[in-house]
Design a protein around this nucleic acid. Structure first.
Lengths: 303, 303
DNA sequence: CATATGCATTTTATAGATAATAAACTAAAC
DNA sequence: GTTTAGTTTATTATCTATAAAATGCATATG
């Protein structure tokens, strides 16, 4: 059976939206809410019924108004707002990256299903999607094999990453001045400046900024395979940043500075300068990742 | 319920194996058969029971012997030996490449499931795997969108292909003489010579040879992402060759000659020469594919 | 005692079912 | 007559169930 995580997330979001309105104000039309919450009108209506029952809004049809929008309004717990598939992804990554799973381990669909408390189909679906990350391999009728989050993996990943990023950066510097990417680059530069200022408290925000920055560079290539490949890097770094907190603040601060040189080099339209700043940044990202794969490789076996 | 395609294929293969033995000879042990047929002993035993019932072998345990191995032995029809998942792949590719599906078409899981006569889970599984080919895109809770087998797709595909193949070829020429890849290259060269001789009758065998040749070149990179990417190219060309018979003989003959120059250039260890023969071959492969995407783009809409 | 077979157990591949959600259609209200 | 709400229909996400196939263990045989 489908879970109602979409509804619950929409409900929570609706609470946030309504909190901007005061008592007695009319509730925005369903179509408007549907657009703002990013769900179908069907779900909006379900949310409105719930809001009504919980006394947040009153009336129906076009004369629905806000009853109480402030105060301690009960929200659905976050865990109930994430789709099974996303939860499986998170749990699998945790299992794989933190669980010290040895290269060569056979992945058992049933076992994971029981461990994650989902049906086997959910695990299968995830593994099929995850296959393209190059970390698992299917053996027909006999499960999957985990190839290991190894040194080799990181090196192969970066070989491609470098190839793609250099190509994209080269296209980027040659972009005409009227390209919208230049203004996007300016905006993202400002974000870097701000984050650097607040680095003491907000250093964990770097992960997302990093992702958006490189995606912007790579979008210059307008090649779906390059953009899609960045998904792999994003995911690896996303979970890596989330769990490897060692020196996080320092690493991120250094990376921001590298990004800034890289951005300024791009803005100078000078390829030689861009190439060297890009190379420097990728080299330090690679070193960070390699440190963590080596770490895993040297752990003692769980079994 | 799982289908018994593995059993049926193994049964057919066992018939071929036994046909090499004469009446009265002992049947090879189960473990041996399991290895030769590439299935578990469980399946081998099921096959042996069936062979017994059909009078092909007799006796049991260690004293099983061949009863009749020649003559018109009944085999399972080929269609019953392919797993549902593979059949879905074939049917989907046909639907997509030959069905004149317009870019932007929304893919309906239920509709495909009915069309292909499988459960929706089978379609979902396929689409999840197929996503990495860059031809479809998922819109959560609202199906998949077909992006179109367009000109753009072919250009993006070849941009990456060229990048990877050049890199691999460069590594290949620099391979030490003792690398086993050199002898594999020699073997594949012989296959080219032979195919060229029989081109009149065997020209459709080129598709597979082409795949193996490029896979060999790319294996020099020892990068899983490069090897995996070749899956995409293989699949596209596999189905493309299968359905686009126009000028097939001529195209393949020309391609074989291109391969031969490319192989000889590699063998000469001369990078400049390799680069130009590789470029020439990729350019003509690209032109072939572009011809067929353009064709699709200009077809009238089905709806 | 090393192999081979026989048997029990576990796991995968696939179908089928259903609540949640989206999409499409219809009717009301301003 | 355009926007909005109400209702019906179609589709997706997810679970459960089960035959086929693989794996593991015990027993027999040369």
């Amino acid at each position: 059976m489908k879970t109602d995580t979409v509804f619950k997330r929409a409900y929570n979001d609706a609470l946030d939206l309504l909190s901007k309105l005061s008592r007695g104000e009319p509730v925005p039309p369903e179509g408007e809410l549907s657009h703002q919450l990013g769900v179908s009108r069907t779900t909006v209506r379900k949310v409105l019924i719930e809001l009504d029952q919980r006394g947040v809004v009153q009336g129906d049809g076009r004369k629905r108004t806000v009853r109480k929008s402030k105060g301690a309004l009960q929200r659905f717990p976050k865990i109930e707002t994430v789709a099974m598939a996303d939860e499986v992804e998170r749990r699998f990554m945790e299992w794989m990256l933190r669980g010290n799973v040895r290269p060569g381990t056979v992945i058992n669909e049933l076992e994971l299903a029981r461990l994650f408390k989902v049906a086997t189909t959910g695990i299968r679906e995830f593994l099929n999607r995850f296959q393209r990350f190059g970390l698992i391999e299917k053996r027909p009728n006999a499960g999957w094999m985990f190839k290991g989050f190894t040194n080799e993996f990181a090196l192969e990943l970066f070989e491609i990453r470098e190839m793609f990023e250099f190509r994209s950066a080269r296209v980027f510097v040659a972009l005409p001045n009227r390209s919208p990417l230049w203004s996007q680059l300016d905006l993202i530069r400002i974000e870097h400046v701000q984050l650097l200022k607040d680095i003491g408290t907000r250093y964990h925000d770097f992960s997302d900024l990093d992702r958006r920055f490189h995606l912007l560079i790579n979008s210059a290539s307008t090649n779906r395979f390059i953009t899609d490949f960045y998904d792999i890097i994003s995911m690896v770094f996303h979970y890596h940043y989330q769990w490897n907190k060692q020196d996080e603040r320092q690493r991120n601060e250094a990376a921001i500075r590298e990004h800034m040189s890289y951005i300024d080099a791009l803005k100078s339209r000078n390829w030689a300068r861009t190439e060297s700043t890009c190379a420097a940044h990728l080299a330090s990202a690679k070193a960070t990742l390699l440190r963590s794969t080596m770490q895993w490789d040297s752990f003692p076996s769980k079994a």
